[in-house]
Design a protein around this nucleic acid. Sequence first.
DNA 1: TGTACATCAGTGAACGCGCGTTCACTGATGTAC
DNA 2: TGTACATCAGTGAACGCGCGTTCACTGATGTAC
Lengths: 191, 191
Amino acid sequence: LRQSREAAAETRERIIKVAARQFRKHGIGGISVADVMAKAGLTHGGFYKHFRSKDELAAEACRRALAAARDELATAAMAAPKGRGLEAILDIYLSMNHRDHPERGCIIAALAGETARLGPPTREAVAEGIEALAALIASQVDAGREISRLQRARGILSTMVGALTLARNVSDREAADAALRSARAAALSWR
Amino acid sequence: LRQSREAAAETRERIIKVAARQFRKHGIGGISVADVMAKAGLTHGGFYKHFRSKDELAAEACRRALAAARDELATAAMAAPKGRGLEAILDIYLSMNHRDHPERGCIIAALAGETARLGPPTREAVAEGIEALAALIASQVDAGREISRLQRARGILSTMVGALTLARNVSDREAADAALRSARAAALSWR
DNA sequence: TGTACATCAGTGAACGCGCGTTCACTGATGTAC
DNA sequence: TGTACATCAGTGAACGCGCGTTCACTGATGTAC
């Protein structure tokens, strides 16, 4: 049954949103096209009316997830008291909530190993997302030091992504919390 | 044809070694048991004479890869001039060579997203490897500051893992080099 | 030390299963007159 | 505004394929006497 153009566009959005979430939760290889479609309330056959391949969906989902992450962090940084933007970003990114819910979190920490092995469209989407995040952090970093703001921002972003990765891979909850706290202190000292 | 106990043990080692490499290169889900066995010069049927499942091999391969990484970095740190151990570690870990050859490098950066979703044996192997790496770094960090050596070591390890992850996910080679250099400076400043 | 038997590492065919993708079909939506 | 036709979003069966795992078999190795 044909849907209106508007309804079809909404469906496409819904598929991307579901995919972004499920990919982060199970890995791109860990969830099937049929599963994504079912979670979006559809049957699998219609998938190819919206995307040329699963890879194309992966690229789109990465793009979407990264833009959402940037927006969330940017909003938090704006809302923070002057000079406290980085704290606001770190409070969200290095939170236990973020560690425990990869499906709603940063796709770099959740899928970076996998995306590095995927095709150019996905890689480009991730690369652009990383640059955007680095730029956001650079805007929250003190000016006028010997090392450029963007360079320091890259170091901070590395620490953020790595800390979340480690926190999700240590079994001991204590050690995971420690990893997040240590990274927070490290990132702030580098501001 | 039955092999001698000694030969069989060597075969098992060879399978683990090949798997550790291929898993890092293609992801655990990205390479089949048959492919691993073929690369080890065997047919796939004999796999289950050595391992109960692919998951068991994954855990073993992670353990092996992490131990090798720790040994390599520890050796470099020992060989470095006094007080320069961390530089030696970072020179290896944050090198372009490491970025370009995940198959011979740190399994955390290559597979962390995936291992976080695997079963307890693999997770434990990774968790132990992380702790061992953190301990090694802690031994190369200045004593007697307000934040404990292990905490600082965790921050440094986060930065290392994150920087390698980012460097492998930005398309622009320039940006990748910058990520590694920035992380190096950040990690050293935190020593 | 020699012999008879049990063990088991390795082979290659086969298994069931889930995957990404294709296809014929349906019928509401969009368009041309 | 109404009508006839083309379009195409969504359905569900089917496709070929590769996967992890199992199995009957082989014959050299290990063991018991």
